[in-house]
């Protein structure tokens, strides 16, 4: 684990001394995006280890995640680090081993960008695990393309299953995203700017 990860880990755990905190804050401006993502990843892994996050949405990429583990040792380091942190909080260590797979899935999930995705919410089964027979149901299944952000992991992440009528899925995704923009563009609820964050999130689909 490099020095920056140690700093971020310490920051996340409130374990930095005054001098270390000063150094950390000074360096923060150099790459705030990467640092923000790393802090978030620590939080995410922590949430998963505490069973405080819906992991079902990560299931469909679990196969590719296991392949990706080998090329990203830092993930293992983060798992160990967060596990130590949680141990300090008196969580039973025996829980950690079976859950660590989920944490890895969550961590690698973060590096993928997935568009609006149709799933079978009745069964909760991800599309790539469904048989052709299952797909004849009215609430049928569709998975859109998955775009890896990290080129180093591209080959591994690309193994996420995409079914045969991918073009239809893209059209459906485009239609949903148009609706999404309409829905949130005129939004005014108690949630403040959150709807606009969603607009921004879906904005990349416009006029593709």
């Amino acid at each position: 684990m490099n020095k920056r990860y140690e700093q971020l880990s310490g920051f996340h755990d409130d374990a930095l001394s005054d001098n270390e905190l000063s150094d950390f804050l000074r360096d923060l401006k150099q790459d705030p995006v990467a640092d923000a993502e790393t802090v978030f990843r620590y939080n995410l892994i922590g949430d998963v280890l505490r069973d405080d996050v819906d992991v079902t949405s990560f299931m469909d990429i679990s196969a590719s995640v296991h392949r990706a583990i080998a090329v990203d040792d830092s993930i293992e380091s983060e798992i160990e680090n967060v596990s130590r942190s949680i141990n300090k909080q008196s969580i039973f260590a025996s829980w950690l081993r079976p859950l660590s797979g989920m944490a890895i899935a969550a961590s690698v999930a973060m590096i993928t960008v997935v568009a609006f995705r149709t799933i079978d919410t009745e069964s909760g089964v991800p599309a790539n695990l469904l048989t052709a027979e299952t797909q004849t149901r009215q609430d049928y299944i569709q998975v859109t393309d998955v775009t890896p952000v990290n080129a180093d992991l591209a080959q591994q992440v690309r193994v996420v299953s995409v079914n045969s009528d991918q073009q239809d899925a893209a059209l459906r995704t485009q239609q949903l995203n148009e609706y999404m923009l309409e829905h949130y563009a005129g939004q005014s609820t108690v949630q403040g700017m959150i709807p606009y964050v969603r607009v921004a999130s879906y904005g990349s689909q416009v006029n593709r």
């Binding site: 995705r117 079978d120 609430d139 049928y140 459906r172 239609q175 949903l176």
Partner: peptide, 10 residues
């Protein structure tokens, strides 16, 4: 091709 039938989530 464009019509959603059933549920979708994000």
């Amino acid at each position: 091709q464009r019509a959603l039938q059933g549920v979708s989530k994000m």
